[in-house]
Design a binder for these strands. Structure first.
Lengths: 189, 189
DNA sequence: AGATGACTGAAAATGTTTTCTGGTCAATTT
DNA sequence: AAATTGACCAGAAAACATTTTCAGTCATCT
């Protein structure tokens, strides 16, 4: 039985269930059936433990998102599907959701850092896709990093923020057509 | 000497200097050279006092922004100037800046509510300008409320958020050309 | 050599006392 | 009579004291 793996799984479960601050190393040790000291032979500290788990989650997210891409569809449709999938993952994936909540409520610094890491990873991923589409002349030349950031922040605004201050949530179709008619339209060659 | 005016000015100064939570009604009374009870003959409570001051600030902001509009310029240039002016106001105007800071650090509920009010006012203002431009066929038909919200959130993202996670700030020209080549381009007829 | 859990200091939670402050209202001034 | 005022109050918040928790270490054990 792989002790490192056991620890990762135990910690992942605990972080997902109780959040970063509320899971103790002792609890993780108990869940993983190891002594507390053993954890520290594999992971320098609690923060690094979280980091390794989040890195795994990013890979998982990429894999799930990649499935959404249908090469026969136009770029804008794939981009929309990918972004909606990412933001859905943010709400559905236990660990991600818990970390987002903890960052908003508790402002745990370690969590803030990890979420920034995830965000930067997402934006880079989208920027890559942009570069590919630009290479294929599906899109006009543009600063893919900036446009990716713009798209990500704009999607967050409508999927996560809008509901906070408005009575009726937007449907996915409304969001799709808004972006269709503004940003994606402006990006066509 | 207009007592109500005195109170408004004293409170405005104090809110700007110390924030909402840190200004006491007694302090405002002293600054305005009135008894504490007098304040309550003009304003139902502390929150209403803030509200009246913020409402004044919104008018001030509109007036300052309106000056930026040059009817000979294309819509996109005016929109950019207006949004940059608004976000600059947010940083430069003492009261606005203080309230933004207080909302981030202290999360005073009354302040949160007021800032939401200001935001909604800004978005409505931008939406109005969109409707006018759409009427003049300068822009394609679109849901002005949604597009205004998109623009506002996107500008905030680049002017306020980008610097938090990136080494080098963006220049105003970079921001202008990004929006030029994406959203505004997509909005042309 | 690798695993362990008792141990430690620092930080957080909890409990307790004191101070502060938004709002009221009877007394005072105009 | 109408407007103004500041002493007063209750509840909130700060300040302080005390206890508990927990990340990380390390001497001991297997």
């Amino acid at each position: 039985m792989d002790r490192k793996q056991e620890i990762l799984e135990a910690a992942s479960k605990s972080f997902s269930l109780f959040g970063y601050k509320a899971t103790t190393m002792e609890q993780v040790a108990k869940l993983a059936n190891v002594g507390k000291g053993t954890i520290y032979t594999f992971f320098a500290n609690k923060e690094i433990l979280l980091q390794e788990i989040v890195l795994k989650m990013i890979l998982e997210m990429k894999a799930e998102v990649e499935v959404e891409i249908d090469p026969t569809l136009p770029f804008r449709d794939n981009a929309h599907r990918v972004l909606m999938k990412i933001l859905q993952f943010r709400e559905v994936h236990q660990l991600y959701a818990k970390l987002v909540e903890e960052e908003k409520e508790l402002r745990t610094p370690a969590v803030k850092i990890m979420l920034e890491r995830v965000e930067s990873e997402i934006v880079s991923y989208i920027a890559e896709k942009f570069d590919i589409a630009i290479g294929k002349k599906e899109l006009r030349e543009c600063d893919s990093e900036l446009v990716a950031y713009l798209l990500y922040k704009a999607y967050i605004a409508f999927v996560a923020d809008w509901g906070q201050t408005h009575e009726k949530e937007l449907t996915e179709d409304q969001i799709a057509s808004l972006f269709q008619n503004t940003i994606f339209r402006g990006l066509l060659p």
